[in-house]
Design a protein around this nucleic acid. Structure first.
Lengths: 177, 177
DNA sequence: CGACAAACGGAGGTAGCCTCCGTATGGTCG
DNA sequence: CGACCATACGGAGGCTACCTCCGTTTGTCG
């Protein structure tokens, strides 16, 4: 990959992040190219369609989340667990709209995204198991339960950060072993 | 309202339902007008923009759900409660994508939609209170809890009906008084 | 430094959004 | 019953976005 190509790839991802968080998954691709100071043709060479750009962006962000989760290994189990839940909520809030857009798209090769998902799940499982082994979290809880709790929490408290904090503390207390 | 206008209004809503469930909130408005055998101008007179059409459609559906919930008054409390949860899940599944599109839109007069929401909530509360008074449902559960549970359930079990049924039975068992 | 594969840019064809206004028609009143 | 007009309809047209295609530019390697 040529140096200019890599530079432009990164620039496009950064501008796509801005545009998608501002306007949702419907953001104009031409606007993204303009923000990056590049032609629309360049955007389409790197990402053949909207889905490809979204998948690349989400995958990059998921990799970032995975890195953070792995760093939680240095914290005590209960604290690491709480931080994991919190980070997942934050990630879910920011990318809920975008992720739903991606989910509704079909077909195509989503290997990259699937891999990033699997990695994030595995990293989360490690934190969960550790917390459970330390007796900080009920042993019957699974990651699927937490996904459901987190998503429900986010949707039920839309636009009410105070309610969100209250319910999150309730959930965390309820999960303690 | 003239007779032809009312007929066309209904026809547009029906075709919008088809199109939105097929293609999500991004469905083409021109396609909706075509399906209804009407000009695009007619669609825009009845619904000045996409949001207005979505709001009208969701409101109509919510009113239908409210009617169903009210009919549950004839069933025994525990059964009515379970049916309410089930119907809410069904409604949420079908309209999740569309509803999210609506939620992300801002400003404008949403009185009609707000009223429909309030009515559905009130009807649900009646069923909940009755079930709790009969001792069929834990007294500390609120409708907000159920919204969170339901939404989380739907999101966590995307594309896996079997898992959905399993988790739903778990939730219903867990809610019993 | 020169050559060429790799990358860029943007014109252009298509389609959807929404507006505007000329045309058609349902309902009402003499 | 017929004529009038407010109400409603249709679609052309201006705009913007999507995506493709190809002529031009540029990084890299011998």
């Amino acid at each position: 990959m040529r140096a200019d190509a890599r530079r432009n790839y990164e620039r496009l991802l950064a501008c796509a992040h801005e545009a998608f968080t501002e306007h949702g998954a419907d953001a104009s691709l031409e606007d993204i190219a303009r923000r990056a100071g590049l032609g629309i043709g360049t955007l389409y060479r790197h990402f053949p369609n909207r889905e490809a750009l979204l998948v690349a962006l989400l995958s990059a962000r998921l990799r970032g989340l995975t890195t953070y989760i792995d760093e939680l290994a240095g914290q005590e189990p209960a604290e690491a667990f709480a931080n994991w839940v919190r980070a997942s909520c934050e990630h879910g809030k920011t990318y809920r709209g975008i992720a739903i857009g991606v989910m509704s798209m079909v077909l195509g090769d989503r290997t990259e995204f699937d891999d990033a998902c699997a990695a994030a799940k595995a990293a989360g499982d490690r934190v969960l198991v550790r917390a459970q082994e330390a007796g900080a979290v009920r042993p019957d809880i699974t990651r699927a339960h937490l996904v459901a709790l987190v998503q429900g929490l986010i949707l039920a408290t839309e636009d009410d950060p105070e309610l969100f904090d209250t319910l999150l503390s309730v959930v965390l207390a309820g999960l303690s072993g």
